[in-house]
């Protein structure tokens, strides 16, 4: 009985406490850099698309809102033919970013993306691609991958020996 009254009093006193609500949009809140907001596709330091269309973001997505198709340029560098995120389904869980092996897909601090028309929330590759490297400067997947692309032949990646000469007779 006393505890009930104590509870009532404690709650009542909160009427005069400072409110924790931040009155957005008049007052802008602090957004930490690792905020999980609007998803972007980053580029390599050399300007090429970082996304190699491995489909890992799509499979990691719990609401299945990412869909893409892989294709290749004539030198075998893989990139997405289309890359679509349906933000009207996205829950900004960040699993896609976690799954991405090339730091291509990144969640940003932008969250102000309301639309009156749901269709405007469907972002294609052109809407997602940014011109920089985003949160991870310097990383270039093809510099560590074994696949050869234009300008990087076999054995020219980091930590690689020159290609084996099969016809060589040296032991």
């Amino acid at each position: 009985m006393i505890s009930i009254l104590k509870a009532l009093w404690t709650v009542f006193v909160h009427l005069f406490k400072r409110k924790v609500t931040v009155l957005y949009p008049e007052e802008k809140p602090y957004i930490p850099p690792r905020w999980r907001g609007r998803i972007i596709l980053a580029r390599d330091p050399d300007g090429g698309e970082r996304c190699v269309a491995c489909h890992l973001c799509a499979i990691a997505c719990p609401v299945d809102c990412i869909s893409l198709q892989a294709t290749e340029d004539e030198y075998g560098r893989r990139y997405p033919e289309f890359f679509r995120i349906n933000f009207s389904r996205c829950i900004f869980c960040g699993y896609c970013e976690e799954a991405c092996p090339t730091y291509a897909i990144q969640l940003t601090t932008d969250f102000e993306m309301s639309e009156y028309n749901r269709r405007n929330l469907v972002y294609e590759k052109e809407d997602l691609l940014i011109s920089g490297t985003g949160k991870y400067p310097g990383y270039n997947f093809y510099k560590v991958a074994g696949l050869s692309i234009k300008g990087k032949d076999k054995g020219e990646a980091e930590n690689e020996l020159p290609p084996v000469d099969v016809k060589g007779l040296m032991p």
């Binding site: 709650v11 009542f12 909160h14 009427l15 406490k17 400072r18 409110k19 924790v20 609500t21 009155l23």
Partner: peptide, 10 residues
């Protein structure tokens, strides 16, 4: 409103 205020909201 009151619930809000008692829960430190507006």
């Amino acid at each position: 409103r009151l619930l809000g205020l008692w829960q430190d909201r507006y």
